[in-house]
Design a protein around this nucleic acid. Structure first.
Lengths: 231, 231
DNA sequence: ATATAAGGTGTATTTTTTACACTAAGGAAC
DNA sequence: GTTCCTTAGTGTAAAAAATACACCTTATAT
């Protein structure tokens, strides 16, 4: 950390995988680039980190510019710095993922000037992306797939009030496999992080299901105890 | 990723937590800085990433400069970029950990010109470190503590041939708790990643224990199957 | 009233985790 | 060479967790 130039600059970026769950499908937000390099390609929302900005804030800013949302929990999952990843020079990117609630209106605001549009794409239909963004996406997706197996992180994707079947569908889409209904419910309820509401689903043409809420307090209490190797 | 300056430079660093296991103690390698800022403080080995260098290579180089070792597996675990972390300006650092085999001689080569010495320090006695390195250390240590609970990553720390008791001691030191001998052996052997050798410990004044080797092939085979949420 | 579609529930079996204590072996000390 | 000391090495029973599996209930639509 020595021999610092009197003034220095940095060239690194933040790229975000923004997950949303909509109509039973897990999607991410992609932008279509309208500038070179990779003009016309789809890419993860991302941008340079200002020198006066913490990485974390840059991630929040990019999320805001892409979706209009603020204060969403984002998790940093890896930093990519292979030499050839940007055709014009050395760019290091810190990758984050976020999970957001798509409440019908799909709040996408393709704000930035370098994107011609922003679209939600099913994770099963992601095209080849600009730069090394395909790799970044795969790594981030793998991360949440692993994490969800031992930590209930997926509630951010659901509406505030949800049914157990919706929750199970979400798990099935993320894990890409069918789960047993009875076992899923038993296990999920045993975590004791859901609050059963006095309310039922509306507008369905079949028996309405009970609604639940995620209980942050209980979650914090029940998931502080760490993983153990045996005793 | 637009509006690139014709020429650009980046200011970021790599910092490494280098773990070693010696005389029953888990240690990390620290350097003592002999330049400002934080002259005289201990710090994690780290340095700038050259613009012509992949992050990964920089990590390897730093490991080599600190220990004389090459080709060791290193894992990136987090990137730190809070605004105030370096007193002279914005420096982003990508943190890696490595685990190395301390085979008696303790191969420390305090090579760099900005370090007056390099020392192995027990993880229980880490002093307050320069910059935000204390925080980096805590985060990295937590990471391996979690990871070892579901992946046998600790073999790199042991001599090539080791006894089950040595392995158990290592786990106990990392997890900071006592484990049951029978259960530990049962579980470890059930992973089927150890090769039992036709050889025994030497030079001990008590019953010599069988020696084992870590079997990389079996490890790869048995740990590709991923974690699952239930079926 | 009937059909349709999802909601909601329990138990037996298997697997995994935990708790727990004694004999065996080898070298050191006398 | 006998005794002592220290660690090696082993099995089983009980508890907990994970799995497999099928039917009745309830709400709406026709």
């Amino acid at each position: 950390m020595e021999n610092l130039p009197a003034h220095f600059d940095s060239l690194f970026t933040v790229d975000c995988i923004i997950f949303g769950f909509d109509e039973g499908e897990l999607k991410i937000l992609l932008i279509e680039r309208n500038e070179e390099p990779f003009k016309g390609w789809f890419a993860l929302p991302g941008y340079f980190v200002e020198t006066t900005e913490a990485i974390e804030s840059a991630a929040q800013r990019i999320l805001y510019e892409s979706t209009g949302l603020r204060g969403i929990y984002m998790e940093q999952f890896y930093t990519f710095g292979a030499l050839g990843r940007h055709p014009q020079g050395r760019v290091i990117t810190v990758a984050y993922y976020a999970m957001i609630r798509l409440t019908g209106q799909k709040d996408v605001k393709p704000v930035t000037d370098f994107a011609s549009q922003a679209v939600w794409v099913n994770v099963k239909d992601i095209p080849e992306l600009a730069f090394d963004h395909s790799r970044i996406f795969r790594k981030g997706f793998e991360k949440i797939r692993n994490k969800i197996s031992y930590q209930p992180i997926a509630f951010e994707l659901l509406p505030e009030k949800f049914t157990l079947t919706q929750l199970q569908n979400l798990y099935e889409v993320i894990l890409d496999k069918k789960l047993d209904k009875r076992n899923f419910r038993k296990k999920m309820l045993s975590y004791d992080i859901l609050k059963e509401l006095d309310e039922k689903q509306k507008g369905v043409s079949y028996r309405a299901a009970k609604l639940y809420k995620f209980d942050k307090r209980k979650f914090a209490k029940n998931f502080q105890k760490e993983l153990s190797f045996s005793k």
